[in-house]
Computed example of a mutant assay.
Amino acid sequence: MADIIDLSSLVSAVRFIDFRVFVSMLCGVNLNMSCGMDSSMKSSLLEKLKQCGSLLSGYDGNVDSCVFASREDCRNTVWTYLTDDDGILDSFQADDELKKKRKISFLRRRKDVYKALGPGSAAGTATVLALGSLFTSSYKGSESHIDIHEAPRDQKIQLLIQKVEFLPFVAEILSAGKKFALETIKAPFLCAQLRLLDGQFKNHWKGTFLVLKQKLEVLKQTGSLPVHVFVMTDLPQLNWTGTYLGDLAKDSGAFKLFVLREEDELVAETTTELLNAGNAIKLQSGFSNFEGRDQQCDALSLPDIRLYVEETICSCASLGFVGTAGSTIAESIGLMRKNNICSK
């Protein structure tokens, strides 16, 4: 995460350790040596990592004072912090139809994270706290898992909440996005973030395209032609035929479309810069015995950074932004635009 997100603003309040360092120390495995190993040694290493990973995940339950495995998840728990609603039922509960359809038998309760996992609790004595997914999003008037937006009783946590409200990408990704906007698009443009294939989004193509169509018609009538449009979508270009995107691509007199491809040189260059920067390793203190990965590993473990560069490009769209309703990616881009990340 810290290779992608700039966490430097939090170092005064949070102590970081890179996960690669954490695994090397806790599992007794030197990841630096993995690239030069022969197949038999690598197989032994992977088996050791698998066993250690199972332990850390909490899959096998609690392990003395080493690992505490939280069994709470978004189906039965909404986490709160220092509020007066610990243990009460959440406002959103599955109705009879949903219970029958999904075979749901549990109730959702609001639970204070400090009381459940803090000092004095069983979790508080463990070295490692294993949690499942912490993804959360507003749903039908309630948070799906974590409802901690402020902490008026704890100024230290309140300040931390304010700091993490928006965390920018690292400089390498921001520079790449700005470079694409300035050197490839070279003109004011609109960004269209279209999530079309995943989950429920694939059932709402008509509504997603309608918002974009309305925006482009206004720009077509009031602005200079062709209207420059950066398209960020999970729908491969080969499948655009027969869709509104295909129609836009054909209308080259009115619209000029841009996309960022995984094989583009900018993506490869930025990936290399990220690997060389070692942002995550630089954040930590007190763990100097880890020197990073062997160069031989790089070709096998390149981070996928295209999405983050695309988000940055969209933050620079001066003609506006059209995002997919309900998409967390659209929400992220909106925050970047709100914080004027492109002008910094």
Rank of each mutant, 00 (worst) to 15 (best):
M1R: 09
I17T: 14
R20W: 08
C27R: 00
N30M: 03
N32W: 08
G36L: 06
K42W: 02
K42F: 10
L46E: 02
S54D: 09
L55C: 13
G61R: 07
S70T: 07
V78E: 05
T80R: 12
D86G: 07
F92P: 03
E97I: 13
R102W: 12
F106W: 13
L107S: 12
L107R: 10
Y114Q: 11
A123P: 05
L129N: 12
S137H: 11
S138C: 01
K140V: 03
I146F: 01
K156L: 07
V164T: 13
F166R: 14
F169E: 03
K178S: 06
K186N: 10
N203C: 04
V211K: 15
K220C: 11
Q221S: 15
L225S: 13
V231I: 15
T233F: 00
L235P: 11
T241P: 04
A249T: 13
E263T: 13
A268Y: 11
T271L: 05
T272F: 00
L274E: 09
F290C: 09
E291M: 14
Q296C: 15
R306H: 08
R306Q: 14
E310A: 08
I313M: 02
I313T: 00
C316G: 09
S318W: 01
T324Y: 01
M336Y: 03
N339I: 03
C342R: 04
K344I: 12
